[in-house]
């Protein structure tokens, strides 16, 4: 009896309304799918092409490989890895990125704590300079810094690029961490002080553990920023054997007039690490962006 009543109610008046609702939402879903396609297809095309032979790439578009005969091959990867400097430059990229990230984030965390929980004359002025520096284009500094490196014999070395990245990245990071560490509850720091904890202890036992999510997203950000950098490495390393993957790939793109197609594989190698970081740590990544963006 009740079952029947429910069935009649469901089947009669609601069904056409639902149909209309679904029909109304078709344009919405269509828009969503078009937007997704615009953003996904270029990358998909590159990845598919990286598994095709250079000859195939010249004869037909990447989409033909989606249907048999696929003709997939590792030829481009083989060729890229055989190209002088490519494999070494991948290692170089790691040797540049990891230390540069560690140096920057450590110094920025210390300064962030200092600006947030220590009182000293000039604090506000220094910090406003830092806020202003976030906007200054690094191009403004390239010539003098290059001359400084040339004069000190550091040009082309790993140390030069670590230091340069640190200098350029610090203003934003100090700003972000000062806000993150300064946003922690004051009572905790005050009671720790009353219990006799000095600044080093308060820093290691309270500030760092509590601000760890912010620090983690910053690490991801700095890592990707340095890994993907072209300008700093191009300027301070030029043709040094220590140059990273981005510089080597760019050199190949501009020097190979034709036949550059096998560089698809190089591009995939270059973006594999950032994409993996992004896919596995998406939550931190997004949080890093929103906290940095919305607050700053």
């Amino acid at each position: 009896m009740t079952k029947l009543a429910v069935a009649t109610i469901r089947s009669r008046p609601i069904a056409p309304a639902t149909m209309r609702r679904v029909a109304q939402r078709v344009p919405l879903h269509l828009t969503v799918w078009v937007v997704m396609a615009i953003w996904l297809i270029p990358t998909l095309g590159l990845i598919v092409n990286s598994f095709r032979s250079v000859a195939d790439m010249g004869q037909a578009g990447w989409w033909t490989a989606l249907f048999p005969p696929h003709g997939l091959t590792f030829e481009s990867y083989q060729r890229v890895l055989d190209t002088p400097n490519v494999a070494t430059s991948f290692v170089n990229s790691l040797l540049i990125t990891i230390p540069a990230t560690v140096i920057q984030v450590t110094i920025a965390t210390m300064a962030g704590y200092g600006f947030a929980w220590m009182r000293f004359p000039g604090r506000d002025i220094f910090f406003i300079v830092i806020v202003g520096l976030m906007v200054v284009p690094i191009q403004m500094t390239l010539i003098p810094v290059l001359r400084l490196f040339a004069a000190t014999g550091l040009a082309g070395s790993f140390v030069a690029v670590w230091l340069a990245h640190t200098g350029y990245g610090l203003p934003f990071q100090v700003y972000l961490l000062r806000n993150a560490i300064g946003g922690l509850p004051r009572e905790i720091f005050e009671s720790a002080e009353i219990d006799g904890a000095n600044h080093v202890q308060r820093f290691w036992r309270i500030a760092v553990p509590m601000a760890l999510p912010a620090i983690a997203s910053l690490v991801i950000f700095v890592f990707l920023g340095v890994w993907n950098d072209l300008l700093v490495a191009l300027t301070f390393m030029g043709s040094s054997p220590n140059r990273p993957l981005t510089v080597v790939i760019t050199g190949l793109v501009t020097s190979l007039g034709g036949g550059w197609q096998f560089l698809t594989a190089a591009a995939v190698l270059q973006m594999a690490l950032p994409l993996a970081v992004f896919l596995f740590l998406q939550r931190y990544f997004v949080r890093g962006i929103t906290s940095g963006g919305v607050k700053g």
């Binding site: 879903h29 969503v32 996904l40 990358t43 993907n228 790939i249 760019t250 793109v253 698809t264 591009a267």
Partner: peptide
Amino acid sequence: RIKYESLAKTAVFLPLPISAVAASIIWKFM
């Protein structure tokens, strides 16, 4: 307004970690 919002967002977000160098090669093909 959609249920698969996070999936759709991931698609638009995906190019963000890609370097300008790699993105340039992607678009050289486009």
